[in-house]
Design a protein around this nucleic acid. Structure first.
Length: 210
DNA sequence: TTAACGATTCGCT
DNA sequence: GCGAATCGTTAAA
């Protein structure tokens, strides 16, 4: 990992999240490489954020979030879906950005083989569980650094030159309780991108240009 | 040791 | 649009 990337992630997740849109996630493994251009992300602010996994402090699952920026935090949702976060902020704080969706721009064939039920290519990496699946990530990669080779896979990122046009923001998805569903507009996505997840439709969701 | 709950997905209506 | 599947993680007993 380069110092440029460490600096990029050593900020508030709220600043990092929109800047990540347009970045390319490059995942290289024995089976081949898959590249995904990010189109949808969510910020989680750690111990101060009721919706964050880090809200109740350090556990055996969320420990990477408390570590240095630019590392991976992978968790299992509903026991099966592997979701990838990029840790933000200085070592000791627990914020991060959940990578929710992206467009597969390289390695489409490999991605399709990992998602045989996907219909359109735009849906290959739509939704955090699906994104984790097409890049072949697993729980064993939680805690690894960007560009670190681990368990036959390395995940690196190519940062965008400039901020994407047409960034939208709105409530986070699937989070409940106080600070949950509609409390904060900490979900960011690229407008008019078909790869952005729909999750129970966008009904009633307020979108704001960002 | 046990019970409850998801930072979700997919299929069916 | 709705509801079930599904199992690791967490917190409580």
């Amino acid at each position: 990992m380069h110092t440029l990337e460490v600096d990029f992630f050593n900020r508030s997740a709220l600043d990092v999240a929109p800047d990540l849109l347009g970045a390319v996630l490059l995942c290289e493994g024995a089976a081949g490489a898959v590249a995904v251009r990010l189109t949808e992300v969510e910020a989680y602010l750690g111990e101060a954020d009721p919706a964050s996994h880090a809200y109740r402090g350090l556990t055996s699952r969320n420990w990477p979030m408390f570590g240095p920026p630019g590392h991976l935090y992978v968790y299992l949702s509903h026991g099966v879906h592997r979701c990838l976060n990029l840790v933000c902020g200085p070592d000791g704080t627990a914020s991060g950005v959940l990578l929710r969706s992206g467009r597969v721009i390289d390695g489409v064939e490999l991605a399709r083989s990992r998602r045989p039920t996907a219909k359109a290519d735009s849906g290959l990496a739509s939704g955090p569980g699906n994104l984790g699946r097409v890049i072949g990530i697993g729980i064993e990669h939680s805690g690894a650094a960007l560009a670190e080779h681990r368990a036959g896979l390395s995940v690196s990122i190519i940062l965008p030159r400039e901020r994407q046009a047409s960034i939208m923001s709105g409530p986070r998805v699937g989070v409940s309780g106080e600070g949950g569903t509609s409390a904060y507009p900490w979900r960011f996505w690229v407008r008019d991108e078909p790869t952005v997840s729909r999750y129970r439709a966008d009904a009633g969701r307020k979108a704001v240009a960002s």
